[in-house]
Amino acid sequence: MFPFIFDWVSDASHFVFMGTLYAVMGLLVIALHYCGIRAFFDWLCKKGQHEH
């Protein structure tokens, strides 16, 4: 799974397979964080409006 694990081989199959996997996982993490951060700022703005 990682290059430091015993039996890892730096060949095309590993790069394609693991590359796709990490790309997918990365996209999911980015999407979740993007939504979370935007929601957090929405909440901050609304909180600010209420306080004013």
Partner: peptide, 21 residues
């Protein structure tokens, strides 16, 4: 609550991308 409501809203917006994955 504001945060979950907004989070759900943004998740809905991102849903086409998530669905594509």
């Amino acid at each position: 609550f504001g945060f979950p409501r907004s989070f759900a809203h943004h998740l809905h917006e991102a849903m086409p991308a998530i669905a594509a994955i």
